[in-house]
Design a protein around this nucleic acid. Sequence first.
DNA 1: GGTGCGATGTATCGCCGCGATACATCGCAA
DNA 2: TTGCGATGTATCGCGGCGATACATCGCACC
Lengths: 193, 193
Amino acid sequence: MLELAVLGLLSDAPLHGYELRQRLKATLGAFRAFSYGSLYPTLRRMRANGWIVEQAGDFAVVAGAPALTGKRGKVVYQLTAEGKEHLADLLTEAGPTAWEDDTFGVHFAFFAKTSPEVRVRILEGRRSRLEERRELSKTSLSRTRSRLDRYTLQLQEHGLESVEREVRWLNELIETERARPTVTPPSTTPQTP
Amino acid sequence: MLELAVLGLLSDAPLHGYELRQRLKATLGAFRAFSYGSLYPTLRRMRANGWIVEQAGDFAVVAGAPALTGKRGKVVYQLTAEGKEHLADLLTEAGPTAWEDDTFGVHFAFFAKTSPEVRVRILEGRRSRLEERRELSKTSLSRTRSRLDRYTLQLQEHGLESVEREVRWLNELIETERARPTVTPPSTTPQTP
DNA sequence: GGTGCGATGTATCGCCGCGATACATCGCAA
DNA sequence: TTGCGATGTATCGCGGCGATACATCGCACC
């Protein structure tokens, strides 16, 4: 999850933690927070897995006495070859993991790096996920409408409308996606025109 | 969080775990999941705190050899006096905790048990929270619009529209709330007409 | 009349992410 | 010159999630 987001961001340019988090907020702001409390552990994990390496940044640790001065330089993270490979893998996976509430936004954010086929697959997966939820919501509503208090009812209806709205959005996206000439691209990492 | 939801549901009638979760899904379906993986631990915690007690349910453990047969009866949970008190406290708290993304829905779901003043306060808190996010989103968009790829842009705009839509919804709710004659109710647990 | 499946029901495990917090430096304005 | 807000790295505890295990119940289908 966060892993995918980080890989995606670093694939454009090396970044340090703080900047990474700024981009995360800017890109996914409305959907996910991604605090430092998950960012740094994730970076460590990714480093351990060999997806990224850290280089000394701006006010670099002068060889000799970094621990003594306590000065801490910016830590800039950069993708490794394995990291790029892993990113490519994640972007190709079009399983259910790609269209759950918390995951979809991240995948979508990197659609420019995703193949058209996978894009459509994810969009459709997301849509049917939401349609399912919509039906559930509808029947539940019609079954209990009379018994519900004013506020619970309001909440249900708002929820239902939100879902319907997102389905409409997805429909448009899928249509647009289909309209685009899907000339199967040169197999690897397509870029946006 | 889950605690509040459980207290709220149990305040109407005693329920067992499974049923509790069904109600949770039906009520908050669109917003929160609340799997068993958090429900049961929460119930245990609440029991330890004395907010709830469990009674033997349907096919009750016949005195004698429950462990031998391995038969497990439904475990029905019921609010204690302290539990009711605690619920009242939680419903009165109108702090930031009440209008964050994950919390707001739960508070809203029990507005019927909440005083009009607190209701308005929470709605307004939520609104300003969203307005803040909206401004952030807007400026970020106008600053980076040209540099963004098709999909990231789409995502941002969809997010922004979602936020704007929810603000509109809140505006209506607040207005309605204000229109209602706020004849300060007899101090405790008001009910819906 | 058995069998097998889907709903009901209780429970745990490991992982992920969040909010709060701490601490340090930098740039700049009052 | 001091003091504040932005930049920057990092940790901790806890709450929630999805997967999983396991058992029973009711009922439809053969």
